[in-house]
Write a protein that binds this DNA or RNA. Structure first.
Lengths: 204, 204
DNA sequence: TCGAAATCGGACCGTTGGTCCGCTACTGTA
DNA sequence: TACAGTAGCGGACCAACGGTCCGATTTCGA
């Protein structure tokens, strides 16, 4: 990659980041505006990132990388704790990157579900859920958890105190993943044996 | 309202309905196309419905009305049953009106949450949830349940057998709203006495 | 230093949602 | 039934957007 190419790529990403962060509605941020902010021709944007969705994805991935690496499930913690950690971090990320996340989820080429990142989180959650309450509906429940922190919902709850949203997520997680104790849960899982009617396998 | 106006209004709604039903991606359905299909000038569309979002909303409301009236909570059933019924019906509705629902949720003027219909379902769910497990996080949990049947998620799970999705929703509902019995729950309500202690409501 | 190749940039294009206004045809009245 | 007043029509028109293209420019190995 030629030097000017790399330089421009960086300039574009930073410019886009600035504009999305400043915008309320991601649709306000046009490709022309990004090009102008980056002091670069529009052709450069499209050559590098393919299309609008590609640029958004690239920027999002860049920011989400830190998250992903810091959130590998910790085997010394219970599934409930791991899921809570993961969901809380995601919630925070979505809050801090509102416009960008909305751009990714609502336009990034149709659905949020075609993005590379989604599969990663979904798989991780599904595994933890399966570990906690059996594989029964783990796949769907993982989707449901992720849906509960979709960026436009988070945006919609903007006027709630942050703590209230966080508590809501925690309650949801507790309900779905393990036996409730609405708060962060003591490390021992043996606490509330799960109802055992047939058909619902459980962890050892 | 003049006769021709009413006639055209109807023609537009029917045309739009046909086109959305036939489309995979709602963005494929342009206002020009709707006008042409309805054999009406584009001006007529915008005069009657304001903008694209308005037309979509009008069409959606029309179709959702049947749902709404048929889904008043039945006081002889438990909250769990009522919520399950409501969610299952919503799921089915979203499946049958995929493109239209996606149009409403992803573009209808930003977020799904600004639409009149949303509040209705949310309030109803929140009430039932509060009844079943206390008011604690009922509001958020209602949002979460609705998020789990968002049209693009439903579309994403298109290749799952319908029954698997339905079962997933049922499991989610059971986890969130009451004490699990992963399946449709027996008709007697004595089963789930309501939490009466203030503060940290839990099932008995 | 030089030349080929990679990269750039902005004029350009097609499509879209939305507006405008001269014309049409309904409807209440006599 | 004829008429006038007006609500309503329709499609030419506009601005803005995502995306393309190609002549000009820059980079960099030799």
């Amino acid at each position: 990659m030629r030097a000017d190419a790399e330089r421009n790529r960086e300039a574009v990403l930073r410019a886009a980041g600035r504009l999305f962060d400043a915008a309320d509605d991601p649709e306000q941020v046009s490709m022309d505006a990004i090009a102008a902010e980056a002091r670069v021709g529009k052709g450069t944007l499209f050559r590098r990132f393919g299309d609008r969705a590609g640029l958004i994805r690239a920027l999002y991935e860049e920011r989400a990388e830190r998250l992903r690496t810091s959130l590998a499930p910790d085997p010394t913690r219970s599934p409930l704790e791991n899921v809570t950690l993961l969901m809380t971090a995601t919630l925070r990320f979505k809050t801090e990157n509102r416009a960008l996340a909305r751009a990714l989820e609502n336009q990034g080429g149709g659905s949020p579900y075609t993005n590379a990142g989604y599969d990663h989180w979904h798989r991780q959650l599904a595994e933890l859920i399966a570990e906690a309450r059996g594989p029964e509906a783990a796949d769907f429940l993982a989707h449901a958890l992720l849906a509960a922190v979709r960026s436009d919902l988070v945006a919609h709850l903007d006027d709630w105190p942050a703590e209230r949203v966080r508590a809501g997520v925690a309650t949801l997680v507790a309900s779905v993943v393990g036996q409730p104790t609405a708060r962060p849960a003591p490390p021992d899982t043996a606490d509330h044996p799960q109802p055992e009617d047939a058909g619902t396998p459980r962890h050892a």
